[in-house]
Design a protein around this nucleic acid. Structure first.
Length: 202
DNA sequence: CCATAGATTGACT
DNA sequence: GTCAATCTATGGA
């Protein structure tokens, strides 16, 4: 059973996502991601995200060299999910931004558990900060894989609700990339202990 | 606490 | 063939 004051506010609509990726990314921090499944509900508060821009503007973006089979969802309808598989075993999830036909996405890197912690512990086989303090950990805690690629956030079982703005918001270069290391496209709530510990490459 | 090596596979050059 | 928007175990201070 959900708490009475849940969802916390308003579900983000198509127009929220259909803007420049760099505008959307910082606004996602503090929002609440909810996934309703037949036998479980999980909700997390987003505390760390990264913007990845379109074709030619951002050397670290999957869309940098144009549309391919893997990244095609980055060019699709805003407000959908772009999930990719990496390092032979991990999935990471992004929120698609920009008008359809223009690439852009926000990687969801870390979040705080709000509801369904038991479900997440089972999926992660771990607890505490290890539940959701990294992009692949978050995806695993939600039980999402490539089958969720293209899932709509505006309608259906997966959605994002606006939440209380974080007291502070910081930005920095992105984690774990080897190109465009100077671009400050990572946004996070410095007061959350769930922010990922990702190493910054030299 | 910190640093590092290994895992493991699909996408792309 | 190379490399990846990462995680975990392990070993040392």
């Amino acid at each position: 059973m959900l708490p009475r004051a849940f969802p916390p506010s308003r579900r983000l609509g198509r127009s929220f996502y259909a803007r420049s990726t760099l505008e959307v990314a910082p606004e996602l921090v503090g929002c609440v991601l909810v996934l309703r499944r037949p036998r479980s509900v999980v909700a997390v508060r987003l505390v760390e995200v990264e913007a990845y821009l379109g074709d030619g503007q951002d050397a670290a973006s999957h869309a940098h060299a144009g549309k391919t089979r893997r990244n095609s969802e980055m060019f699709e309808t805003p407000g959908r999910l772009y999930v990719y598989f990496t390092y032979g075993m991990h999935h990471c999830m992004n929120v698609v931004c920009e008008a359809r036909g223009r690439a852009g996405a926000v990687l969801l890197r870390a979040a705080e558990p709000v509801l369904g912690e038991t479900t997440m512990r089972r999926r992660r086989n771990r607890g505490g900060l290890e539940l959701t303090n990294g992009p692949a950990k978050l995806c695993a805690a939600l039980g999402l894989d490539l089958r969720a690629n293209g899932m709509d956030l505006v309608e259906g079982p997966l959605g994002i609700w606006s939440g209380e703005r974080p007291r502070r918001l910081e930005r920095s270069p992105r984690i774990g990339i080897s190109r465009a290391r100077d671009l400050p496209y990572r946004f996070f709530d410095p007061d959350s202990s769930y922010v990922s510990r990702g190493r910054i490459p030299h």
